[in-house]
């Protein structure tokens, strides 16, 4: 499929649909339609169950027991992770959607011209740092003995607050955390929460596999123009870092790649094919 790709348009569509679903699901439940129910901590579609793996992991860790409901509910997210990469973050997460809006506003205000491109050492440091932060967070939850990380899981909080808003017409204090994050997003570097701290995203990215969908330069027609680097919201170099744990398969780099118009250069692949020497 050579030519200008429209991944971003599809992504926006999916993101908007997921964002709307947060409000529509509780409304449907008020009308006693229970086909789809839940929040982004845990959701049911018909008989298929899915739950946030880190939430279930914490519950299993603190109660030192696993039951069949917990085990079944993490199967779908982990399979999605293994096959499609970290698509939850870029295609579905409501917080990521909001933050993309924030960075759009920031660009309009002239606060930041483009996303920073990091050096390889800095990228490595980032990857190590986020894993260390995750381990610290999990240790903290282990010490407390309760699923503490769910208090800072941005997508879960947003969706449960949407539920409370639709059902009871008020919001609880947890929303303050999200507002604080959004304000911080204006102050710190773009996507600081998603990139470094988000426990949900970091835990999910552990299941990203080399054989799943990931970004790859598949042809020699790359002109090394660097436009993909500038477009990457995570500050990666898509030409080399396609299988990095930080990459969340948003596809922005594929959209901006000028070489894709002539010949397919940068694309999503799955499996260990097309090992093009760079």
């Amino acid at each position: 499929m050579a030519g200008q790709s429209k991944i971003k348009r599809y992504r926006r569509l999916v993101q908007a649909a997921v964002f709307m679903m947060m409000f529509i699901i509780p409304a449907l439940n008020i009308l006693e339609i229970y086909f789809i129910k839940g929040t982004f901590y845990s959701i049911d579609v018909g008989n298929a169950v899915a739950a946030d793996p880190i939430a279930v992991f914490q519950a299993a860790m603190s109660s030192k027991s696993v039951n069949i409901y917990m085990a079944l509910s993490v199967v779908i997210p982990i399979l999605l992770m293994l096959f499609a990469g970290r698509v939850w973050c870029s295609w579905m997460c409501p917080y990521h959607f909001i933050v993309e809006g924030v960075s759009f506003v920031k660009r309009k205000l002239g606060m930041k011209k483009s996303f920073p491109v990091h050096t390889p050492e800095k990228k490595r440091r980032t990857e190590t740092a986020r894993l260390i932060i995750l381990v610290c967070f999990i240790a903290l939850a282990g010490v407390a003995g309760i699923p503490l990380l769910n208090l800072i899981s941005a997508p879960g909080i947003i969706s449960s607050q949407a539920l409370v808003l639709v059902k009871f017409h008020y919001v609880t204090f947890e929303l303050v955390f999200i507002i604080a994050l959004i304000i911080a997003e204006f102050v710190f570097f773009p996507f600081f929460w998603c990139r470094l701290f988000c426990p949900t995203g970091t835990f999910l990215s552990l299941f990203k596999s080399e054989r799943g969908m990931h970004l790859k330069r598949v042809s020699s027609s790359c002109s090394m123009c660097g436009s993909c680097k500038r477009a990457c919201p995570m500050g990666l170099d898509p030409v080399t870092d396609g299988s990095s744990l930080l990459c969340h398969n948003c596809g922005d780099c594929i959209d901006v790649c000028p070489d894709n118009k002539k010949q397919e250069t940068l694309r999503f692949i799955s499996g260990r094919q097309h090992n093009f020497p760079s």
Partner: peptide, 25 residues
């Protein structure tokens, strides 16, 4: 309960009487 509850709010969602509420600060 505190160990197991992941605060997913699904019990709040399905409650037809709006009895189950989300604990606040």
């Amino acid at each position: 309960f505190m160990e197991l509850c992941i605060r997913c709010a699904r019990c709040i969602e399905v409650c037809p009487y709006e009895s189950v509420k989300r604990a606040d600060l």
